[in-house]
């Protein structure tokens, strides 16, 4: 009897701990975000409590800020091209790693996957060295190459994982039915790794859009959005940054929903 009472008590206590635990972690993760959003609508230019009143003016000043808008365009340019490059290089790389045998394959794999675990600063300065040595001046294009190199590993790991799950017999069946290697690739392999490609492209785009360590070393006079925000931030904190941040979070949300539904589509197949 007492044992049973003890057990229920223990379970109640456990449940309480459990709910508190989850709630506090979620609070740790999301209260700051809420603070960010709330202050983007706060009337005062200082980020202090109590709140002083509702305003849209920070958003208005964001959309009137030429420098910021240019940085935003630059970021789109960089992230789009970097993503295309990661796919163009990454998909064949994943394919080669999974389906081909060639000398130096282990070294190749290690090289390509290294940026996944290495701090961005290493990729940043190593490519800075290269560009300086080759006499390239730094520009958005050098940033694109840097991002593509750093994010190649994202596409390679995702596509490689998908390829591994894709039975070899599909390729054999295609070849058996008269498909040349390139037909097999475009008609059979590509459609079956499509969702992994789109998923990793989305991730690649987001990460590139958000990248600082590599950009920091490789950019010339043009700024990407995070670099612009960062430089403003170091000058001082303004609610305008909160407004930009809120917009970025909204955009991220869209991307999350998109990628989750993509993954689901993959699971259902």
């Amino acid at each position: 009897m007492i044992q049973a009472l003890n057990n229920t008590l223990f379970r109640r206590l456990g449940d309480g701990v459990f709910v508190t635990m989850i709630a506090s972690i979620l609070a740790f993760l999301y209260l700051p975000v809420i603070v960010l959003i709330v202050f983007s609508f706060n009337d005062s230019s200082s980020l202090t409590l109590p709140l002083s009143g509702f305003t849209w003016k920070w958003y208005q000043s964001v959309f009137a800020n030429e420098d910021l808008l240019r940085a935003l365009r630059n970021s789109f340019y960089v992230a789009s091209l970097a993503t295309v490059l990661t796919l163009v290089i990454g998909v064949p790389a994943a394919f080669a790693l999974d389906r081909l045998n060639f000398p130096g394959k282990t070294l190749f794999r290690r090289l390509v996957l290294l940026p996944l675990v290495l701090p961005g600063i290493i990729t940043g300065i190593s490519m800075l060295n290269l560009f300086k040595l080759m006499g390239f001046s730094l520009s958005l294009e050098t940033v694109i190459i840097g991002h593509a190199t750093a994010l190649l590993s994202v596409v390679v790991t995702q596509v490689f994982a998908r390829l591994q799950r894709l039975s070899r017999s599909y390729e054999e069946a295609a070849a058996d039915l008269g498909a040349r290697p390139w037909e097999t690739f475009f008609l059979v392999i590509l459609p079956n790794i499509r969702s992994a490609m789109i998923g990793s492209a989305l991730l690649s785009f987001t990460l590139s859009f958000d990248e600082i360590p590599v950009t920091f070393f490789l950019t010339g006079r043009d700024n990407t959005l995070p670099m612009y925000i960062w430089s403003t931030m170091r000058r001082g904190l303004t609610p305008e940054i909160n407004a930009v941040g809120t917009l970025i979070i909204a955009a991220s949300l869209v991307l999350i929903v998109l990628s989750v539904s993509l993954l689901k589509a993959d699971d259902e197949r």
């Binding site: 039975s167 599909y170 054999e172 069946a173 070849a175 058996d176 039915l177 008269g178 498909a179 079956n192």
Partner: peptide
């Protein structure tokens, strides 16, 4: 394989999903 006039029924069928 793509130049041989033989065709195969695979054990796991290998139907293109």
């Amino acid at each position: 394989p793509y130049r041989r006039d033989v065709n195969m029924v695979f054990q796991d069928y290998a139907l293109f999903p």
